[in-house]
Write a protein that binds this DNA or RNA. Structure first.
Lengths: 336, 336
DNA sequence: AATGTTAATGTTATCGATAACATAAAAGTA
DNA sequence: TACTTTTATGTTATCGATAACATTAACATT
């Protein structure tokens, strides 16, 4: 590989002069600048950012860790993060934890050893606390996305899980449903807990009794969950509607219902959190609380870079982004 | 940040000894090994991979460049690439060119300056040749994904665009359609050209005349293309079926048809390349030629690492992965 | 006992860049 | 003219790790 020394020799200057040309720093005569630039062109010189990072103590790389690259919520978020990073002169080192603490830990080690400038972190769940502490111990600038983690103080971009859940459930209530099941993510994840709270609130506000038997905790990625579903369907007084805590759970539920010969929304209404990207474009079917995924990424990245570049207050900021209730056709009036 | 020198001082050894402990190289007494390890734990030492890369001339980073992070084909591919990279001890530096040559160029510069060990490259189109040449000039190990680029010799993982197209069109022909439109990606992209060839072949084999007016070249990401569509619909003898060259184009077409009050498949049959991920799970509607996206990524990564680690022959390999025709309900028998 | 081996550790140079300090030549000033 | 200032460039040390080459000390061999 070509180094500044190769350039320096061929242009008859010192390496330092080459460095100055590259960085446009110091004073250089036009003649040498031209000459150096020409040699760089000729030899197709590309600076070695490892060497540069070593002296500058700055990589201009930001790590983005998400939990599921196949979920449109996260890919849209990633796009927001990427666009903003690029605009502000940072590269993205990308990781996918797969909702798996062991993978997440590996990525955290990688992040630290790569000496990235900061991390956009969508935690797997409360168990991410150890990993986040590790990052903070090393003073790694950090912004949390989508999920809070008890015990961790950091800039955080959240969605309005409670409020969104309340509105989805109230939508079902307004359609006449009284037996509404909640198929939730893991109890270990803040959004799942908040959606549960919103669900209870909606029931309470409308004087509908809360029934523990209608609430299931699964895993946000568990597309198929036959047992959970048939458990609900075999209750003495089964639900007439399902509130799924995210898009994958909703699809899993709908597939399960179909497998049992039940139609949505005729035999069962279904609503959920998070829109479906392409799927909704093709077939506007699911009634959802759509979160501003792109904004999660772009705002989070903005905040992170603010911190990296010292433009932030000391105390962490938190924002709760509103979601939008999109009423489509997967939930229908209760047949009396 | 803690360095090996901090460890060395506290453990009363030289930096070299610490390095030996870290890398398990050379001979070290159990006593010192223990002591050094303990100090590393205490100080939460994490090696600086920039420094390491500088001496070793190896980053253990592989760059993955895709053209559209919101397309399920590419996210699934990314997953395959990531899983394989991780298994073989490499990290992923991720980039999204957005089907945009300028962005692609920026990423190529980034790739070179980061001194990654290799690149998995899904090119934007024939215009990527310049970027690929730049990489090859620097001897960067390279595997091309999904699209070939004229003039570039490299390991390449392709889908069977021609064959897949032929089968999709023959499926439409078998349903009685004779006027079949092709809404294609840009002529600048090898897959679009191959799909065009497959389309023509199918017609020829079945003695259906080829009509230029039925063939449109768009852009793989152009979800909405009203003019193109109405152009087709206003032909003297309009098509009864559409073969869209990828999933996005199909969705765009279907949306456009709906906007005109036309139903799929009743008023128009639609088939396309590439499955839809979630969308198909929710609503098995589109008849598609599904490509093994995960395998694109995992095989490509495998090949790339083979090259990086010197386990490959000199001459480039090419593989063409078959696609699977999934017949669903978006294409129906022609009403006579 | 003298010498050769081996095991365990240390020293120095290096990767490719930049910061900080140094210097020579040109230009400005008294 | 002598001296200061400015401009353009060069030298050396440094970032944090590892390779290659020392150097001890302990042990084996004749």
């Amino acid at each position: 590989m070509i180094t500044i020394y190769d350039i320096a020799k061929k242009a008859n200057v010192s390496a330092m002069t080459v460095s100055r040309v590259i960085n446009n720093s110091g004073k250089i005569s036009d003649a040498t600048r031209q000459r150096v630039k020409q040699v760089m062109e000729e030899l197709h010189y590309v600076p070695n950012s490892n060497a540069r990072s070593l002296v500058l103590q700055k990589t201009h790389i930001i790590s983005l860790l998400i939990t599921d690259i196949t979920n449109p919520f996260y890919t849209t978020l990633a796009r927001g993060a990427e666009d903003t990073a690029k605009r502000l002169g940072y590269k993205l080192l990308f990781g996918n934890s797969d909702e798996n603490y062991a993978k997440e830990k590996d990525y955290v080690d990688m992040i630290l050893s790569t000496r990235v400038d900061g991390v956009l972190f969508a935690p797997t769940g409360d168990g991410s606390a150890a990993h986040l502490q590790q990052l903070q111990k090393h003073n790694m600038p950090l912004v949390l996305l989508d999920r809070e983690v008890p015990g961790i103080q950091a800039d955080t971009v959240l969605g309005d899980s409670k409020e969104g859940a309340r509105r989805l459930v109230e939508h079902l209530l307004s359609l006449g449903h009284r037996r509404i099941a909640l198929i939730n993510g893991s109890e270990d994840v803040s959004t799942a807990r908040q959606r549960h709270v919103g669900y209870k609130e909606a029931l309470k506000l409308n004087d509908v009794p809360y029934d523990e038997a209608l609430v299931l905790y699964a895993n946000y990625r568990e597309i198929q969950n036959e047992t959970a579903l048939s458990q609900l369907l075999h209750l003495p007084d089964p639900p007439t509607a399902i509130f799924a805590a995210n898009n994958f759970l909703a699809i899993g539920a709908i597939q399960g219902l179909r497998a049992q010969g039940l139609q949505v929304p005729d035999d069962m209404s279904v609503v959920c959190f998070d829109d479906l990207g392409l799927a909704s474009a093709l077939n506007p079917f699911l009634t959802v609380a759509a979160q501003p995924a792109y904004q999660f990424g772009s705002l989070g990245m903005q905040w992170l870079i603010d911190r990296i570049e010292g433009r932030s207050q000391d105390e962490p900021r938190t924002i709760i982004l509103p979601s939008e209730l999109i009423v489509r056709s997967s939930a229908a009036k209760l047949k009396s």
